[in-house]
Amino acid sequence: MLRIVFTPEDLARTRVAATWGPLGETLLSLTTLQQTQERALFGTWRRTVDAASAARRHPAAALFHEAYLDLFTVTGAAATLEEGLEALRAARADHLHSELVGAADARLRYTRCTDPWAGTAWGDIAYDREDRDTLLAYLADAHRSAVEPYWPRILSRLQAEQAGHARTLAEHGAEAMLAGLPPGFRWRPPVLSVGQGAVTGTVELRGRGLLLVPSVFCRTRPTTYTHELDEQAPPVLFVPVIRSVADAAALLTTPEHGLDKALAALLGRTRAHALDAIGRGPCTTGQLAERISASAPTASEQAGVLRQAGLVATTRHGSAVMHALTPLGRALLDGRHFQAAPLQAAARVGSPTP
């Protein structure tokens, strides 16, 4: 159990983010992938990822066997995978080194291992550029199989979770929001307890506040992540959003079944995700890029191809453009008339945008 101690100033500075971004979820997913518990929730997802990639078998996976290595505060929250990887590429060597030392120390404190580096001493991502580039390539590959296929639904769920907590915070205050956190969290002023069992640590916020971040793949020993180079930054605490088999099925199995799988085969996975993302509500190019975890140029290209196929309509509002599904796009997404016009339109999707 983790105890987080608040002062009145901490309560005033406590906030909720929607997500740490696709790289943050990828980092957490690598730990969840290697764990064997909660098979009902993550068993199907693990088998799917194992069949699609060597993420679990790669030597760098040892860095994420437990969620002790804090790359979250190293990169900061990042809206796209590319943004997060670039932040990691540019990270200061001394910052990464301190996080590696901290992870080794945590392993020594929380496990029976007498050698804190055993099983985790892969490479030198702090000072060896080749090792860091290898890590970046590994994370990009892991993301493609573990997170990217599910990202539009994950992001939608995380945004909804954040909106609910933010509404409680705005209308009733921080204490009501903390009291309304899911099972596993217990608010007894001035302490927020996380997890079960004996106390494994106490965090004194000391006026920094707390940043709560909903997460699909946060399933490890509760811990806060603190920026090594910024003493005033609020610690980060991830809050799980998967609380039932139904949650896991909705977020982590749907893309591999039924129409979604057919759409991915028909349009290509990224384009199918773009169509699905626009189907969740009209959006600008920037919002589409965030929903599908892509750069703005990539999102613009995908929207352009879908528009050319007659699946998406684009209108201009001032300096921004807004993308929305056409009736043909909605029919294809919903599976109606799947044998007729949508197939003809989709056949043109591969044509280059003029």
Rank of each mutant, 00 (worst) to 15 (best):
R167S: 13
A262N: 11
T298L: 02
P327Y: 09
H95D: 07
G84T: 07
H65P: 00
G209K: 14
A87K: 14
A174V: 11
R13T: 07
S244C: 06
T326R: 10
L2I: 10
L158H: 04
S98V: 04
L237D: 13
V241L: 05
V213C: 09
H97S: 13
P22L: 07
T298M: 05
L210N: 02
V16H: 03
T120S: 15
G180F: 07
T223V: 13
L266T: 15
L237I: 08
T168S: 05
G304R: 10
L252I: 13
G195R: 01
Q287I: 05
D94P: 02
A179P: 07
R167Q: 14
F6K: 08
A77P: 13
L155M: 03
P342G: 06
A346V: 00
T285L: 06
P149E: 04
S156F: 09
H337N: 09
V199C: 12
Q308Y: 00
L96F: 03
S244A: 10
T36C: 04
A103S: 13
V239Y: 00
L263F: 08
R47T: 11
L259S: 09
V199E: 15
S193L: 08
L205A: 12
P255G: 07
V245K: 12
P8F: 05
A163I: 07
P189Y: 14
H143N: 03
V147T: 08
E99G: 03
D10N: 09
G329E: 02
A309H: 02
A104T: 01
H97N: 09
D50K: 06
H65D: 12
R47K: 10
L71A: 08
V191P: 12
D260G: 06
